[in-house]
């Protein structure tokens, strides 16, 4: 593991697995049967077509991180596990959301969106579809802000993360 454990409740693990049928079920099944809670999980193939990368955020109140890592490591298809320390990694999450936006509130909404760095994906008569990519905390804040407008439909991807190139991340 790259960095020492942080004191946060949520820890981010990057798990490199063989890109084989059923591997996600093995990982998810392990979490379920050992009673490990996960906050989010994102999976996609890597640049090496034989491998996939799972970014999983573990709630360490349910089980010590060390147990989670050791049990994951026992899965035959798990190739590598790294913990990403929040101070030494870049974490991103994507949100797309359809939100109520009466014409008279649109300018204000777009202003908030611009400030957060998001995009307007489409505009309807009294709703807008927006997207935002950013660190999970910024997504949380923006989600809270949107509640004031009325969220119609909403999807977050769960976080993905990479170790920082050098020095502390953002």
């Amino acid at each position: 593991m790259s960095a020492g454990p942080s004191k946060n409740r949520y820890h981010t693990l990057v798990v490199t697995v063989e890109n084989k049928f059923g591997v996600l079920a093995r990982v998810a099944g392990l979490f379920a049967r050992r009673g490990f809670n996960i906050e989010s999980l994102a999976v996609a193939p890597t640049d090496d077509e034989d491998l996939s990368r799972i970014t999983v955020v573990v709630d360490v109140e349910s089980a010590p991180l060390e147990q989670v890592v050791k049990q994951l490591d026992k899965l035959i298809n798990v190739v590598e596990i790294r913990e990403l320390h929040p101070d030494h990694s870049v974490e991103r999450e994507l949100m797309i959301v359809t939100v109520m936006a009466e014409p008279d509130r649109r300018d204000e909404l777009v202003e908030h969106l611009d400030r957060a760095g998001g995009k307007v994906l489409s505009v309807g008569t009294d709703a807008m579809m927006l997207s935002l990519v950013g660190p999970p905390a910024r997504i949380d804040d923006f989600e809270n802000l949107l509640r004031g407008y009325g969220i119609i439909e909403f999807q977050r991807t769960g976080r993905v993360a990479l170790a920082s190139l050098d020095g502390p991340g953002d």
């Binding site: 049928f21 059923g22 079920a25 099944g29 049967r33």
Partner: peptide, 14 residues
Amino acid sequence: TTGITMAVTKHNFL
């Protein structure tokens, strides 16, 4: 079978 036995084997293969 592999789904059913996933939790009770060290590993399984289809």
